[in-house]
Write a protein that binds this DNA or RNA. Structure first.
Length: 566
RNA sequence: GGCCCCAUGGUCAAGCGGUUAAGACACCGCCCUUUCACGGCGGUAACGCGGGUUCGAAUCCCGCUGGGGUCACCA
């Protein structure tokens, strides 16, 4: 929008203002005056109010578009975990946002392993991170295992590249060797802390004479390299989520970019890789925001273009502290072990810090790609809520077909001895499928399913205590159970419709309320008070089993053994 | 402590100067039902505080408070 038009727009908006006043009620003389002014303006210019509204809508859609689409530069984003532990849910979300952004812009999602810390990096962690990402369905286009034109993708394999870039900086006198020992620096930091100063490097080695540097280097004295940072001016980080963030250069000290052991620090390696891998947008956790001015300075020192940044907020524990082990599951693999479905976890992660709009919060990966907007990611940290994750999991879990659930749960069934590993009996499998179908709608996860299925496979050795109090209390309850058993033993065919008919006729004969028979029967048959429809359970259990369980329960009630059994 | 970021119900989160301040989870009722779950209907519950700017502020500005991050030869 060019400048002269702005004035016109201002007037247009004033008119809209006036229209608002009319609708919301005229309260003040001022508003009345404004209304007349508006009417006058409209008449003078021959605009109807509808026309004006129309103009505004156009202006909104003009400025509301996604500016990314206009740039033809390819989107390249990366997720760069350090293999020093499991993939954290915070990391998973960062990876997901990167992935979404890449997929949405038909860009490239790069997986890079930031393992410059050789002491803490482990192969097991590397494998676990890859497994977790795959499980979540976050596929990468370039990475250590799949290769790509910008490899290698493990920093430990890129040492020659870093050395080369360091040489470049040395030649341009952008860095200088620093001989201060860690202990010395530690002492200085502590002193600064005590005196209330910012703990910043003093610059002691910055002005060493060329001779001294040469001789100390020749003597093989241990040293690091620091970047010369201008203390004048300011560095601006353009952040897609937060807008411009300004840092005074005086706040940035001559930070270390090369360690004494001859390896680059994270800052150096990361910037070199991002530049050389032509990363267009760095989407990473908020904890890096404070480091970003250093990175901007580094990119510039290296002579590289500065990529765009987006710092996504952190995920906090319910007490608003940093998420840690004591808050329960924090890694993707733990959720996986707990029976959380990847679709559910990924969906939940999206909702943490982003609102897809509309009312639907249960959305597929494809819908997520479509609705995701990086610039609309929340600025504030989110507290994670297991309850909502579990609810989402239930949504996905129940939506699965019984056959799929059967396949997934099979190993667990075998382990419990509920099915033979090589079961091929058609009736048995169909029966199992039906049992699952009835329990599935009442299950939030695999553990619920197992619980709901238990009594089909195991004898009832305990009865729910509150159920006993309520349903087994009547003096004639054991007698009723025996009569039910007797009646059932004569039912044929033993199918839901027939069983229910017989059951209900017995209710009538006895002249009691349905619940008086139904509830004790359920408890006798399953040991619990909840579950699928009673007649469905009966048919699945089979006539003989029902009869014997009813008689056993009756016997236990009569002998007072009902609460003692284990 | 310096610097940086942030602030709407218990939690997630709409909102972009005029709204009865959405929606979801959780919680509480009611309905459905042989129980439970699902589902349906309804309810409780929020703009951290103080100053401005404005006819009008959750929305813009300043301060405070609170939370978080960072200041490593970790990433």
């Amino acid at each position: 929008m060019d400048f002269p038009k702005l004035g016109v727009w201002k007037v247009v908006f004033s008119i809209l203002d006036g229209a608002w006043v009319v609708r919301t009620g005229i309260r003040t003389f001022h508003n009345v005056a404004l209304l007349w002014l508006c009417l006058w303006f409209i008449m003078m210019h021959g605009h109807s109010p509808q026309r004006v509204v129309c103009l505004r809508k156009e202006s909104v859609s003009d400025t509301g578009g996604n500016s990314m689409d206009k740039e033809d530069k390819q989107v390249r984003v990366r997720f760069a975990p350090s293999p020093t532990g499991a993939l954290h849910i915070g990391g998973a979300r960062t990876a997901y946002f990167n992935w979404l952004f890449a997929r949405q812009h038909k860009g490239v999602f790069v997986l890079r392993i930031d393992d410059t810390d050789r002491a803490r990096s482990t192969e097991a962690s590397y494998q676990q991170i890859l497994d977790s990402l795959r499980w979540l369905g976050l596929d990468w286009d370039e990475g250590p295992d799949v290769g790509g034109a910008y490899g290698p993708y493990r920093q430990s394999e890129r040492m020659s590249i870093y050395t080369e870039q360091l040489e470049k900086l040395k030649q341009q006198n952008r860095v200088y060797p620093c001989f201060c020992t860690p202990e010395e620096l530690q002492r200085e930091r502590e002193l600064a802390q005590r005196e209330g100063r910012a703990p910043r490097y003093s610059g002691k080695c910055r002005h060493l004479s060329a001779d001294e540097v040469a001789s100390r280097l020749a003597a093989g004295e241990s040293h690091v390299y620091r970047l010369r940072v201008e203390s004048e001016g300011e560095t601006v980080v353009h952040d897609i989520i937060r807008g411009d963030v300004v840092f005074q250069n005086a706040e940035i000290d001559d930070f270390i970019i090369w360690k004494a052991d001859g390896t680059p620090t994270y800052h150096l390696a990361s910037c070199i890789d991002d530049a050389l891998m032509e990363i267009s947008h760095i989407v990473r956790a908020e904890e890096h925001l404070s480091n970003t001015p250093r990175h901007v300075v580094l990119f510039e020192a290296l002579g590289f273009e500065v990529p765009q940044f987006a710092h996504v907020p952190m995920i906090l524990a319910p007490d608003r502290s940093k998420l840690s082990k004591r808050h329960g599951a924090t890694s993707v693999s733990e959720y996986r072990e707990q029976g959380i479905l990847p679709q559910a976890l990924i969906n939940y992660l999206l909702l943490l810090g982003f609102s897809p709009g509309e009312d639907n919060e249960v959305l597929s990966r494809e819908q997520a790609i479509e609705s995701f907007r990086l610039d609309q990611v929340a600025k504030h940290a989110a507290v994670y809520d297991v309850k909502k994750l579990e609810w989402l999991n239930a949504q996905y879990y129940r939506a699965q077909s019984p056959d799929l659930v059967l396949a997934q749960a099979w190993a667990g069934f075998v382990e419990r001895g509920w099915v033979a590993p090589d079961e091929t009996n058609r009736e048995r499998l169909a029966w199992l499928r039906t049992a699952i179908e009835f329990v599935l709608s009442r299950s939030r996860n695999a553990a619920d399913l197992v619980e709901g299925l238990r009594y089909y496979f195991q004898p009832v050795n305990a009865y729910d205590p509150t159920g006993v109090k309520k349903q087994f209390a009547d003096s004639d309850v054991s007698d009723r159970l025996r009569r039910i058993a007797k009646r059932l033993s004569e039912v044929s065919p033993f199918t839901t419709v027939v069983v229910e008919k017989e059951f209900r006729s017995l209710i009538e004969e006895l002249g009691v309320k349905g619940g008086k028979l139904i509830h004790p029967t359920r408890l006798a048959l399953t040991g619990v008070t909840v579950g699928p429809g009673l007649f469905d359970i009966m048919v699945l259990l089979g006539r003989d089993e029902c009869v014997s369980r009813l008689e056993l329960a009756a016997h236990r009630i009569e002998t007072g053994n009902v609460t003692l059994t284990q």
